[in-house]
Design a protein around this nucleic acid. Structure first.
Lengths: 164, 164
DNA sequence: ATAGATCGTCAGTAATGCTGATGGTACATC
DNA sequence: GATGTACCATCAGCATTACTGACGATCTAT
């Protein structure tokens, strides 16, 4: 393919940069988590369960992660099949499915989380420490602002596709 | 839904932050571009065509945007149907489809691009000027580093799903 | 008790991307 | 000049993912 001289005009686009950044880290994360038999989303679910003080229901987990409750069903199915979590009808409210980590799930979480941290470190490697911190803090600031403004995703919008 | 006290553990996750950031700006972009009858990806294609010194082929556009060539077919179809671009067999190489902007397409591009800039400004609004610059530059640095390292997406990987 | 709301589940649908095959075209080599 | 290889656009088929709407079971307020 002859180079028709296409300057990288898109490199100045915030949307394009964010898309590539997300796709890049998501791909690396998937790869790094494969040895633990979990996908990023499953790790997120286990993380939320572990962090919750009381055992959360499927809906609560979904809400925090920003996932649809119907999607959560399959994720929990998958995790349960691997023996990492357990479903149980709540005693207080028998509509709710309380999800708990099994000992194996907790072990997996601890180890997989280290892999996640490695991925994040590698991802930030091209930056000096100050820039890396600035990036993270800027993203958090935007996240908080959007959350406060209620601009959070209705719960799942993310037409994939590539760089826009 | 009773609050079971789920600390926002995911807010420290780079992958989660990037996903939300991308989803947020992508959603806003889609909305802002709707009046111009284009989706973000179509704007990207028009932008690349406009920036190319010679008229690029479909494959070249796809390569630069990081899109699959089979997907590009549909995008060009859509843009052609709207009268924004024209396909033409290249004279020099009749395998290639040279894509050019029509006057209407150029007008649309100019106007839609202003909308895009507004979206980016609004997105960065929660940050002070220095943080906004730091964010953009950090993302660009990572983009360049990944590009140089050849870690660019094979051309399209982006399992949607939500925050990981 | 009865009505309305909530939770988990499932089936169906839509959007998106990729793989592989096809037809047309260029180029290099003989 | 003929032929084989590589390349481009296109299309059909498949896989993945998410959402909508409906359903049964359950809670809660009246």
């Amino acid at each position: 393919m002859k180079d028709v001289c296409l300057p990288d005009v898109l490199a100045g686009r915030l949307g394009y940069l964010l898309k590539h950044a997300y796709a890049g880290i998501a791909g690396a994360m998937e790869e790094a988590l494969a040895p633990f038999s979990v996908i990023p989303r499953e790790l997120a679910v286990m993380t939320v369960i572990d962090a919750a003080r009381e055992q959360p229901s499927q809906l609560e987990i979904a809400a925090q992660i920003g996932m649809d409750r119907t999607t959560m069903v399959g994720v929990i199915d998958s995790l349960e099949k691997k023996g990492y979590v357990e479903r149980r009808r709540s005693d207080r409210d028998r509509r709710r499915n309380v999800v708990t980590l099994t000992p194996e799930g907790l072990t997996c979480l601890r180890e997989a989380d280290q892999a996640r941290e490695r991925v994040e470190r590698d991802f930030l490697a091209p930056l000096d420490a100050a820039s890396a911190r600035a990036l993270t803090e800027a993203l958090q600031a935007i996240y908080r602002a959007r959350k406060a403004a209620g601009s959070m995703l209705p719960a799942g919008r993310l037409h994939c596709g590539r760089p826009d």
